[in-house]
Nucleic acid binder design. Sequence first.
DNA 1: TGAATAGTGTCTCTCAGACAGTATACG
DNA 2: CGTATACTGTCTGAGAGACACTATTCA
Lengths: 245, 245
Amino acid sequence: MTDDEDTWTPPEILVAVDLVILTLRASVFHVLLIERGIEPFKGAQALPGGFLNNAEEDIYAAALRELREEADLDGTDLHIEQLGAYGTPGRDPRGRVLSIAYLAIAPGLPDPVAGTDASGAAWVPVERALSGDVQLAFDHWKILDDAVERARSKLEHTPLATAFCGTTFTIADLQEVYEAVWGVDLDPRNFYRKVQRVPGFIESAGADRRMTTGRPARLFRAGPAATLHPPLTRPDPSNDSEEGR
Amino acid sequence: MTDDEDTWTPPEILVAVDLVILTLRASVFHVLLIERGIEPFKGAQALPGGFLNNAEEDIYAAALRELREEADLDGTDLHIEQLGAYGTPGRDPRGRVLSIAYLAIAPGLPDPVAGTDASGAAWVPVERALSGDVQLAFDHWKILDDAVERARSKLEHTPLATAFCGTTFTIADLQEVYEAVWGVDLDPRNFYRKVQRVPGFIESAGADRRMTTGRPARLFRAGPAATLHPPLTRPDPSNDSEEGR
DNA sequence: TGAATAGTGTCTCTCAGACAGTATACG
DNA sequence: CGTATACTGTCTGAGAGACACTATTCA
């Protein structure tokens, strides 16, 4: 905006939207990946996403549209937040593409995605997707890594864990979310008290119960709190090299 | 990416970079704002920023360039991180502009910015900038608000506060940062112990001292830690309506 | 009845906040 | 000497983690 005021015009750039859709399936933390059918990165796995439809489309609306087209999910039910912009030149071999990444959290979906627009959509365990065994297209490994860290961190200070559950859930369900996303084991009894003590985190959903062997559990729904006071802190990973005392 | 595979081409969009530069001046939390000299929003205050130079420029590099051009700051010394993308259609009355916002933290700069590219650059207290008394251009109020909340939050879990100080600082300096950014008063004695206990937060910078009235203070520099364990938590704002006991 | 899961009580250790008290500079 | 700032010690109450114990269901 300094030199060449008369002749210079700002460049126009291709803008895309990428989605990191996280969920819990059978108590395991999963992400939705799609096998690319065309070059570049043909045959590799990629996050669902695509370009803006037109120069007037809102980026958030584009994220909702891709969610519908590629995962057959209704974004109005889900937690969605923006992760950030990934715009390093060269990240797409076809040319300059600026991608806005979104993080979506879905309640456990029992069946693999089928009949969707993209062929080869599949839920992949996050641990496997980040392990290096899976070939990820573009800079999608970095985007996924950022998304997972964002989710892990937000579990501590926000009620994000409830977004992994349905409208009602038990405290054991909530604990499964924390254990799967953080990759740790938690004491059910301490977890129980801790969660109950945070004002506005969860509230009772009637005297309802639930089928299982053992004593029925109370059902809860997400409460009005936007942040957790006190927070639920992750166990310190510095206690790794522990001895049997 | 679904219909009109043969005829449709993705739209190209103008991409800009906006900077939220935060610092401490005389123990008060400030942000750098620039008075706009041209329409739209002529006469209003705006965050420094501008369009990408060309279609190959990296967005992070563009942020560094704007930092140099508009604030005469060298980004290699500063903490810089991406805040997010702001792309609502209509945010710029001239047309569709997607803006990538960056957060920069600078050590206290004693003098107002002068001799810079943009006329009317000024440090404005954050509280005043967000109060509504200052007319902010575009959606810059929202960007600033997000940036301030990001900074406040990161003070808890990362050594970000050291980015507000020079290479060496006293613990009292660090406390001023926390007090100014959070807008609270802290007990110096508890703060002292708390900060010292976090491994890797700060480390002694020799037996150096410092001029002031009263006992000289030890100097420290930023330590190697990327996150603070345990964190420094903000006082609970729910203790507002307190009585005199 | 036993197995399985849900939920409670209680102990101990650590940490946060309050604040008395000591140390070292300047005038 | 007093004053101002830097730093240390100690008390108390709240929360984290460990774990014994009670409650309620199904087979």
